[in-house]
Simulated scan of single mutants.
Amino acid sequence: MNLLNLIRWKNLLMIAVVQLLIKYALFPTFIIDTTLSPLNFFLLIIATVSIAAGGYIINDIYDIETDTINKPNKIIIGKKITESTANKLYILFTFIGVCLGFYLSHKVGKPPFFGLFVIIAAALYVYASYLKQIAIAGNIIVSILVALSLLIVGIFELIPAMTIQNETVQSTMLEILTDFAVFAFLINFIREIVKDIQDVDGDHKAGMQTLPILFGKTRTSKVTMVLTLITIAIILYYITTFLYMHVGAIAYFLIAVIGPLIYISIKMFTAENNAQFKHISLMLKIVMITGMLSMVLYRLIF
């Protein structure tokens, strides 16, 4: 159980479920051509979650000092799992993910795709060891990696199967997936800043330069509120431009995505203590889930 908590098994499960939704709900197989067999798609999921698991481990290794202050009751490395064992687990998970990426890239006839796995693994290490200490930079990097966990399905499923005859349809589906990736980036970016607000005390003692340390918790909270309002505006533009003929889809987005985001923006305006910011972080996670579940609606649209 300690290992499962260390690798954030709930988050890894969410990544796997979202990738399954992309393949079996978002991509209508009667319209588009896909590349991976069920077995190879399963290996793609394993590769993605393995690299992500390695990322969580290396992040915790570098966060031992700050977690002692921010999350003293949730510390695993040094208490339940030794730092040496954690380093070995990091290497193991990352090695598995990168090796599977190498195999899959050659399997679909696109060897350069292997570079994606190397870049993602390297970015997670650089984030944990250096970038997370820099205001905004770390938040942007980790949010890009979250978006890539969606896009990588399209890269492996759609691009290798693209021909002159199906290029228009394949490109359209890739654009739709990119829209979801942008949504994931925005929600995760906001949530990362909220988490920085929660962790401001430990981060300050560790010498980090996160946004709340530079601007203060109150100003940073207002920044996240503005970012949330911008996200709401983007989603409203999207549904009125592309989904205006689908009343059910519009209703879903209004109730399950935009409604909670409005609630979150109001809470951000009034939030003052860690309990309130923790609640906001949880709500953002729920919005991420409801947003990803909207992929099921596209099967009805197509």
Rank of each mutant, 00 (worst) to 15 (best):
L3F: 13
L6S: 05
R8D: 04
R8I: 07
W9H: 09
W9L: 13
M14C: 00
V18W: 01
I22A: 04
A25F: 11
P28T: 02
D33H: 12
T48C: 08
D60G: 05
E65T: 11
G78E: 06
K79V: 11
T82I: 04
Y90W: 14
Y90V: 02
I91K: 13
F93R: 02
V98C: 04
C99S: 14
Y103E: 03
L104I: 09
L104H: 09
S105W: 05
G115H: 00
F117N: 00
I119R: 00
L124Q: 14
G138P: 04
I144Y: 08
L145R: 03
L150P: 01
L151T: 02
M173L: 14
M173Y: 15
A184C: 11
N188H: 15
K195T: 14
D203E: 10
G207T: 09
Q209N: 14
G216K: 07
K217Q: 14
T218E: 14
S221M: 06
I239D: 01
H246T: 05
F253C: 07
L254N: 10
A256E: 13
P260F: 11
I264M: 08
M268Q: 15
Q276A: 09
F277E: 10
L284H: 03
G291N: 12
L293E: 06
L293M: 14
S294K: 10
S294T: 10
S294W: 12
M295N: 10
L297A: 04
I301V: 13
